[in-house]
Structures are given as C-alpha cells and as structure tokens.
Design a binder for these strands. Structure first.
Length: 136
RNA sequence: UAGACAAACCGGGCAAUUGCUUUCCGAUAAAAACGGAAAGAGGAAAGUCCGAACUUCAUAGAACAGGGUGCCGGAUAACAUCCGGGUGUUCCGAUAAUUCGGAACAACUGACAGUGCCACAGAAAAUAUACCGCCUCGACUUUGUCGGGGUAAGGGUGAAAAGGCGAGGUAAGAGCUCACCGCUUCGACAGCAAUGUCGGAGGCAUGGCAAACCACACCCGAAGCAAGGUCAAGUAUAAAGGUCGUUUCUCUUUUGAGAAGCAGAGUUGUUCGCUCGAAUGAUUCCUGAUUGGAAUCGCGAUCUUUGGGUAGACCGCUGGAUCCGAACAGUAAUGCUCGGGCAAGAUAAAUAAUUGCCAUCCCAAUAAACAUUGUUGGGAGAACAGAAUUCGGCUUACAGGUUUGUUCUUAUC
RNA sequence: GCGGCAGUAAUUCAGUGGUAGAAUGCCAGCUUCCCAAGCUGGACGUCGCGGGUUCAAGUCCCGUCUGCCGCU
C-alpha cells in the first residue's frame, strides 16, 4: 500500500453513494469558506475513506474545473493519513464530497496550490475531530 | 534593416520527488493488491454552423409538404468547402482618357408566370399622369381672367420620375430624325462553358425589392454512440407449473381493532429456546343434519422453469476517405504509385502536482555606443484553451516565436 | 454528447420593413394640516454585439456573446 496514493478504491464511483451523500450527509466549510465538504460517517466492516470532487458547471470552464479538481485531489492525498488512521481505529467508513463554494473562475483565475492545501487541511481536520469524538 | 500585410509552421525544454489512466510482463484457476516496462490532449480538442461514415427505425415505388443550394468549369465520399476562370461593385494608384494596373468583396437564376410592397414628400411610385411652366384656340368685364386642346424640354419632391448627351426639327415639344454612349436582339469568330471581340438590326418597349410570397433547376427519409448490440444482481417484477396453507378467540352497529397461533422467516452449522408472524373468501358436490371431507376459482407462502429487463459489466471504441517522405500527372485544388510508421481511449470521467535550472520577456544599474550589444541584480516564466463514436470543412478565441513572399505609400541607414 | 427557446426603458412585457410603445417604478407640480390614494406633466433606449440585403432594419439573412430549459 502506497502512502500518498489515490487509486480507484479511494474514490466514490457509484451513483447511489453520491446521492445518499447529498441527501443524508452533513456539511463543513473550510477556514476561508472557499471550499465546502459534504460528509457521511457510518459503521462498516471495511473501514476507510472515500472521496469525490464535484465542481459546478457554473464555476468556470472545463480547463479551470479540471485544474481545481486535480489540485484538491492532490492536496487530499498528501494530507489524508491522519484521517484514514482515525477511521480505521474507530471502524468507520467515511464518504466525503468536496465542492467549491467560494471559488469560481471570474474571481480566482489563477489557482494557488498552497492556498488550496490549507483549505483542504482545515476541512480534514474538522472531520477527523468528529470521527474521533473530540468535537461535540 | 525595421514596420505593415499575406501564407505556412511552432506554440515551451531538462532534471528530481510524489501521483493518475490504459496495455503488457512478473503469473498463476481467477480476482484484488504489489513491482517493472511502454504509451498517454489541440491548433483550435471549443462553438455545434454545414457535409459524410456508422447504427437503429421505416421500406413496393413515387409524389406532395417542409428544408437547403443557385455565374461557369474542375476537385472531392460529400458539402454552404477548396482550386481555376468570367462578370459586377467599391477602394487605391497612374493617366489626356470612357484607358491601364493592383487590392478587397459578392445568396452572382428569374421582376413581360402570377400575387404583393414602395412610408413621408410629390401632379404622378407603374395601365403613366398635367401642379407650376411652355405653345395654341375660344369667350369675356382685354398689361388680365376663365374654359378647351397640344406638350415630359425646364421647375419642384423623393432613395428612385419612364434611356443619357449634342445637333436637327417644331406653334411648343417629343427616338420624331441623326451621330456617339448605354440597352435589347441576330449573326460570325475565340472559348468545354460562363463570357468576350467584331459586324448588323431594333428605336427604347419591361423603375426597384425575390436575404417579400413565389417560379425554375438541382439536392435532402427520420433520429442520433445518452445510436445500437451482448450478458445480467435484486424478498423490483410478468407468465406457467408443483407443494402447503386459507385457523381460533375477544371487542365493535359496520368498516375494523386486539390477542393467540399454523406454514414460513430471522437469530452462528444443528437442536431447543426466543423474536417476527401471511392470506378473503366464494361456488358446487358427498353426508339425514352439524362437524368433517373433496373439486373449481380467488388469495397467501414457498420451490422450479421461462420472459422482458433496471443497477451494473462488456462490445460499439479506435487501423482510418489514416499519418510521414519521395517520384509522376495537373496552372491549382487534388489524384495516383512506391517506401516507411501505428501514435490517448477515460466514463462522478486519466494525461497531474511541487521544487530547481534554462530558453524567452520586463525593470534597474553599469561599460562601449548610430541602431544596439555585453555584464550584474531583481521580477515573471505566461495566450486561448481539455479528447468523450470517428472523419472533411467553416466560424470564433489566442501571449510569444520561426520561415517565406509583397511593399506605390511609413521610419532609419 | 445531443436538441430547443429567449435577449427592447430601472422592472414586466407589446411592437405588419417606414418618427420605438404600454403598465409598474422614478422625478416635479396640484390636492392635504401631514402622509397615502387621486389628477397633471416630465425624464428614462448602443432594441445583447458585429457584419450584410434594402432608399430605409428592433423586424429579413449570416456570424458571435450571454442566459434559460429539455433528453439520462
């Protein structure tokens, strides 16, 4: 198992999962409110974390949308280890869907990787605290 | 030389680390995970504006409706594309010129098949008509007024006024007559043709708008890979068949409610225990009658078989009107022959991120200096934009760069 | 990926090729002790943008931009 990988098993592929997530999941905003994450925590025999990234068509053009998705995925796979460990300890399966709430192409034509990393980190931190029960 | 314009081409490179998708190998019965190797966005992948391939539907053929195209010839699988030619319009330059040269653009068939429109102004906007004017005749109250007739040369209106201009002619005028120009038409010649040149005739008759309806000629069946095909989970569900069941009590006017409980299900493989716990009955027959039993239909459970087919998987899916090079044919578009190459195939959707260096660009300082070049320091390191069945075009977006050509006009030497 | 619709005043919409309109809103005046209502008047337009056809284009044709809807 590679440390920083993000293979097919760690991404949400099924339509049903995503619909469940949108219906039943709760949401969390990043520290600067530029990202929004919908997440769902449930007990499972196969503990782990699965993610998806969804960017609205209205946010920007195809090149821009692809780029922000890649940056978010990249930031996640670098910083995922604490959350994954916590999920395994507590025997939970976590589904996360990242979306853009503050970002769009008009305002953020050039995307800065470091800024997005900080945003993703803040989201993961909040969810991790929920999982381990340190946050009420 | 720079600039401008046109055409063609490129549109970042190298290294390290961390990752993604596909294929192959380790490699097996198969899958997952792991390791290794190879490959992995564009000139517009975009807009979806045209044209095709392909697939399904429909299909005996044709027409109508509807849509598209519209100078001529060629290229092509096809096209609204491309190439060559003609004609016209506009602009620029030269010129004595109506001539010559260059560039750009053109939906560039038909207005005597028909219907329609042409605001305002104007007498009149299409069967010509007579407001002012010009000429003439008559009457009267005679420097004038009224009435009849001739007249499209002049005025005024308009985007547009019934060939233009000059001469003859006339009461005044009029292609009424003539020359030149334009137009229509006939013949000869050149050209495959559009058309052009020359000669003759007509005597001007048919103002504009078909990107108004329309007519004529030619073309088009419809939908689109979310097309379509194969496999196919489900206590999702249709049909057929087999087996078992369709019970008891209490309350309520009824609908119904509650309890027990059979089949069955769940609970660790089995047993016990525990939990949950389906259904609607109707008709006929056997029997003296009740109980009970049987048959048919309905209902419920369960098993088997079959069907369509959702989720999903696979095929379609990338080797093709293909790409590169050379020779030949052709003015060219392009064709043809030979040689070589195989180069994305994702599906909540891969092709990336970070760091360093470089090409390149900007700013400052400094040395030489006509433009400009070298050195040092700092900054940026980019534009438009992301395959989605596949091709041929068109259109639109685009930082910077390379090559070739043109330059009457710009600047510098 | 494919198909369709719309763009006109601040807003919602009309508008046969011939001087761009209505309602609401806005501003001013009248009315009222004041406000509202009412009455009178006024301002407000790159007809999304760029070409073309025409004497003349919001309207016809071509291109382009933006917004919206549908197909699963």
């Amino acid at each position: 198992m590679k440390l920083f990988s993000l293979s097919k098993n760690e991404r949400i592929k099924e339509k049903k999962n995503i619909q469940n997530l949108i219906q039943d999941g709760s949401s969390v905003f990043s520290s600067k409110n530029s990202l929004k994450a919908i997440y769902l925590i449930k007990d499972s025999n196969e503990p782990g974390v699965k993610i998806a990234v969804g960017i609205s068509r209205k946010a920007g053009k195809a090149v821009w949308r692809n780029r922000i998705k890649r940056l978010i995925k990249n930031a996640y796979r670098i910083n995922k280890i604490p959350l994954v460990n916590s999920a395994k300890e507590n025997k939970k399966q976590i589904l996360i869907l990242f979306t853009s709430s503050g970002y769009n192409e008009l305002r953020n034509k050039k995307l800065d990787y470091r800024e997005i990393t900080e945003e993703v980190k803040s989201v993961l931190d909040k969810i991790e605290r929920k999982v381990s029960g340190r946050l009420k």
